[in-house]
Design a protein around this nucleic acid. Sequence first.
DNA 1: AATGAATGAGCGTTCATTCAT
DNA 2: AATGAATGAACGCTCATTCAT
Lengths: 201, 201, 201, 201
Amino acid sequence: MSPRNAERDLQMRERRIDQILDAAREVMAVKGIGSAGINDIAAEAKISIGNIYHYFTSKEEIFSALLKRGQVGYGKLVAELAAENGTAVEKLLKLSKAWLAADNVWTQTILLVSSRMSELTSPEEREAITGRFAANLTPLAAIFEQGIREGTLRDGDPLEHAMYFVSFMQGLVLQQVPGIRVPVALRAERVVSYFRSEKTE
Amino acid sequence: MSPRNAERDLQMRERRIDQILDAAREVMAVKGIGSAGINDIAAEAKISIGNIYHYFTSKEEIFSALLKRGQVGYGKLVAELAAENGTAVEKLLKLSKAWLAADNVWTQTILLVSSRMSELTSPEEREAITGRFAANLTPLAAIFEQGIREGTLRDGDPLEHAMYFVSFMQGLVLQQVPGIRVPVALRAERVVSYFRSEKTE
Amino acid sequence: MSPRNAERDLQMRERRIDQILDAAREVMAVKGIGSAGINDIAAEAKISIGNIYHYFTSKEEIFSALLKRGQVGYGKLVAELAAENGTAVEKLLKLSKAWLAADNVWTQTILLVSSRMSELTSPEEREAITGRFAANLTPLAAIFEQGIREGTLRDGDPLEHAMYFVSFMQGLVLQQVPGIRVPVALRAERVVSYFRSEKTE
Amino acid sequence: MSPRNAERDLQMRERRIDQILDAAREVMAVKGIGSAGINDIAAEAKISIGNIYHYFTSKEEIFSALLKRGQVGYGKLVAELAAENGTAVEKLLKLSKAWLAADNVWTQTILLVSSRMSELTSPEEREAITGRFAANLTPLAAIFEQGIREGTLRDGDPLEHAMYFVSFMQGLVLQQVPGIRVPVALRAERVVSYFRSEKTE
DNA sequence: AATGAATGAGCGTTCATTCAT
DNA sequence: AATGAATGAACGCTCATTCAT
């Protein structure tokens, strides 16, 4: 009734949404994207199935929102990193470590790849996803530009480097799917080394 | 006794199996792995649903066989490449081009990633997949070893390089999912360049 | 919190379960156990197919529950009968009449026999069924013991008599499958007479 | 061409039919009636699936023929028994032993019960089965008549006794389904005892 | 807002039967 | 007569979504 309540309602709504998204990510991480049913998500979120549909119109939308949240979060991370003080190599190392450390990055990556493949995804949705993906490349490119200026990173188009770097990271992260043993350990230093100018290594 | 030609039957069987696997790959490529139904595969293969089950005991098995075929085929390719005459850089370039050119490599990659994630995949199956994956690294490592000897590729553990290279390629290939436009073109030369020793570039 | 009445829900659940079991029995009675499909049961119960699976995890489980309900019901009947006042012969007559009168006893019998034969039935399930079967013999054996004491029933091991009596009843009941005309009427008195001591008949 | 060949063909046909029926009985005994598929029967009979349809027009017909064969065989057995020298009690004992000994009598019994229940069975077919069943009671009734005359079997309508006796045996036989342990051993003497006149026991 | 029972289209799979050889 | 590949209707079951409360 009062603006107070309206505001509190809105906050409640935000909290519920986050709760659902967290549950969705958790379930996806444990059961795999294909086997994550909304009943699982509801159970994980400790919410009723029906109530989920008060916050999302479809399962699709949940995954879509989850992906968006991930992309936005990642975007913030890189943007902050780019704006920080420090050398480009330090920043790249930090970023690589973040990719390889985070337990659930592969979930986001799978989600991204899946959403690209799914014919269910609408063209607008695709556009949005791709747009955010491209936007997130910019601060990373800035880091590469800084590194090139500093002479510590390989020469070349900074945006191109950013794109290759992200692809590289995604490829690596997908090797970390739980239950898999890879013959070689994945280290942030190693990844970054490929992008460094050898003269200064 | 038998009014049938046994040899012909066997050939027919092989052909049908390939037919089904091709159809499965095609459907997967168009609809995505999660949405590829048996009926789609049957329709694409111009075979009845029931008949598919003369050749495969389950949908799972089809994907498993498809992945295996891809891994074996790729294994042959790298092995031949490693045994060829030529410099390591040339070989790496050839390989990169093969990855980026082949329309359906991303299908295999998705399949690989998905099979790793699916809890349906039996532990033995997983072991087999991981085993083939690891085995396929060996000839690639040999190429890296050659390159290091030749002084054209970066120093380091050849197997480690091989692992990173494959992850890199997979990450790139996943950007090529149809319907997606990436802001940067993917070029084999660029990929290889990251693994080259800068002194000789 | 909950906008639902928990107690009512629970009652509703019980009612639905009975509704489904009744439908299953009815369908089985009309179409035979092998041809009783989930869709038939759903139609008979005026419930959707999917909803059935809110109450039972499988078709198997429905039949299992139906059999159990029958066994438990029969067990109560014999136990009460054994505890009643009256002569053993009177009790046996009552029991025989119950067997021969009840329209659906043969359904239970078929179910029992089928469950024994089905390789789908798990060993634990089998054990439970056999256990209930054996347990239900005890009160019947008590009746035979009483009769022997009273000198109206044949001498011998009461449990053995009970076992033979039940087998006999089952055999008779299976002649009453609908659509069959047997050349001889089945009468409770006749059955009991075989177990009576002739001196007192 | 020659009558010789025609005759041999006919014999061959008979042999094949028996081969198939034997296989059907065997499969039914091992897998249960519901799970006996014609592929199983074909495999057991070492014959191709398609070829089975040269001898039977449907799976139904196989079971029907199997049941008929069993009924006819049983009919011969009782008829011979009735015609034999010996007392009625001896004959009844022999018959009871035959019922309880034969490993596969329960298969026939299940088949009989199932055919009665199946709505697939045509009315004519049912009539035939019931007719044979009734016909087979006659020689058994003759044995009872003899026993009554001899004063060793209970008084009463011989046909009625026959009917009850067969029902009893069927009930007992169904307890012998493999994989089941019953709390009481089944003995031919015990069964017969219920039909004996106590004065002479 | 919240619940979870109810729905039904759709899935993977089976299997009696047919057909080309 | 003999083969077994091929067919497709039908089954049991799942699950995203809706609805009555």
